[in-house]
Design a binder for these strands. Structure first.
Lengths: 214, 214, 214, 214
DNA sequence: TATGAATGAGAATTCATTCAT
DNA sequence: CATGAATGAATTCTCATTCAT
């Protein structure tokens, strides 16, 4: 009832685990959670089906492990950048935008985002984790930027400063939008994310009508 | 032995079809495409499972029918509004925003959006349809508003006008963001969509730093 | 993805259910719960694997249904016999013994007993059901026989009457023993159940040393 | 780099084997053969899974080893007792009953009995072994007791003497019954084994109707 | 000897789809 | 047109057994 197989590298456990996660990311991203076959994950990882279960309790644990393992870094980098930054608010915002842009253009990070967007709501624990580890710090970074800008006298419009402080989501909206767009309309009408981000920032900073809000 | 279910009589084919689509929307929205059971759709629609196949070729056709049937109206309304509108650009933008807000707060429309967001990429035909029927006209509406605003002298900042013309998506971004947010973080930290839209408009119209973009 | 199959008799649902239960009894009796394959049950019942799940929620429900459906009759028959009986206590006991003997020699009933013996302890609900529906009434029948025998002056030894009233199990013990024996030592040294029952009755009624218990 | 697990040193092979068997008894008794996991056996024995295979060829060999190793003693003790005994037949029977009672109340011996009862029939070799090593001598002991009782004039009823000689199983029946009962109805209605044995012996020795068998 | 990671055959369960009535 | 019982391919998860170290 068993092995005729060739043997296996000294491949330590961590590397094996990483192989599995990488394979799982590909397969889940390509098919979604429900349509992903663990068989395919195993094949892609170069292990037997049963081996997956040595590293993850079940399909869901694999999926959640995958997301969690790939999610953390962003806000750390952002807040690191923030504390060291010496330039103007505009430059700081642009730097953050560049960071986010790089992020959504990294295949792996992008796949994770797509999975969070399309599957996250079916995994409440994952959503809570994501909110706590990524979203909350992310919002904090934006609020810190606004506070810094106001303090330095570079953000002069109080209503807008307050609006962005209340809803830092506004700054992330275009990135989310770009990801959803290209996930969906890739073939029909791909969106140039960098150009979109650029235009979006111009709008956010300058405003459509130069200050009069009504 | 006359009919034992007279209640079913008035149901003509179209009504039956509508029942099925309504049931399908609920079930697909609650579970996603892959996890939705046609059994549940049939039960919710009050028909037998086999009956579904008299109206739709298969599960996918039902899903696509569902989306298509529920998608159309928006841009029509928007462009209707546009041609009749007499107020200022700000007012017009606010009117459009109110329209979009109402839209994402209509349960049925919201469910369709969520399905498009999370499943759309797995149905290229659907994506193409959506792009053609909804997205393109939607972008057109925004471009028309910008053109009208510039023509009326209400939009005075050329770079921003051009940015929004190039990427009308900027105006839809917060609504998409709000939907994704509440789809995912509903339980953790629900987002007040109206307040978010309000703040977003303030930023879009006024700009963070009153015009200086750098 | 589907049927090329020949079609199926008007076979009403009850008959189909009975087919499945009969097949399941064979397969479970032959292999035990854990080793029984539902594939085999389906094949033996002449249905597809999925069909089993139209009648029973899962493997355990099938097993429990099987036991419950085959268990009831015994004590009913016995107490029926009891109320109508006109002969002596010895004759009544012999009649009961004959009944039990017939019971354990009915293949189907025997299989159920064997399953209860070897698997019952892993299904507490089943054990409770069995105890309530079969064992309790069975013990009652024996107690009634003893009471009747004492009342008629046919059972004259009070200590023994009390012993059997306290532990009516004593009357069932040899039948249980016979079943376990033949289930286990069938091939090595089969036990003639009728002869064993006969000898047992002689011991029970007459006693080894004619009454002196010490 | 000397040994890091000196605690294991004194453990010679026999002790290790005994550890495994003890662990296996627990695990098999708790779950039955099919549901027992060798993983659990290994953990309980404090060895690695592969180690089991250094001591036993496979799962079945472990199970059989387990039974065989735990089965032998009983009849030896009984026949030892028999040859030395000086009291009356009643006393001798009571002594045997006490022995059997002690036996079924020893956790380890009880577990083995339960395993033999519920799994034995699936292991013909084991059944044959058990029959040869335990059952046959056990029956012999009872026959010897009867012969001795007749010879000493303490068993005066020939038909009963012959019945018990033909079917010494009658004397073991209550113990088997008690084990099966408590294995199954433990939670619902536990049986006091000592009291049951007592009453059973009273019946066996005295008879229900003091000698008249019909 | 001992280890325990890896294997993969095997079994339960699900559900879209068909079709006889 | 409508029904819903039946089908069986597909997929997850388990665990005895092996073998490189």
């Amino acid at each position: 009832m068993t092995s005729l197989s060739p043997a296996r590298r000294p491949h330590d456990k961590a590397a094996r685990r990483a192989d599995i996660l990488a394979a799982a990311l590909e397969v889940f991203a390509a098919n979604g959670f429900a349509n992903a076959r663990l068989d395919d994950v195993a094949r892609a990882a170069g292990v037997a089906k049963g081996t997956l279960y040595l590293y993850f309790a079940d399909k869901q644990a694999l999926f959640e492990g995958l997301i969690k393992e790939n999610l953390a870094p962003i806000p750390d980098v952002a807040s690191g950048m923030l504390s060291a930054f010496e330039g103007s608010t505009s430059e700081l915002i642009r730097a953050l935008v560049a960071l986010l842009l790089a992020r959504i253009q990294t295949p792996q990070a992008r796949q994770v985002m797509q999975l969070m967007i399309s599957e996250g709501h079916r995994f409440p624990d994952l959503a809570a984790f994501h909110y706590r580890e990524v979203v909350t710090p992310g919002l904090g970074v934006v609020r810190a930027i606004v506070a810094r800008g106001v303090a330095r006298g570079e953000i002069r419009r109080a209503p807008q400063a307050e609006a962005l402080t209340r809803h830092p989501q506004a700054l992330f909206a275009p990135f989310l939008t770009a990801v959803v767009w290209n996930m969906t309309f890739d073939k029909v009408a791909p969106l140039d994310e960098a150009a979109f981000a650029e235009d979006y920032i111009a709008l956010l900073l300058g405003g459509l009508n130069g200050g009069e809000t009504s």
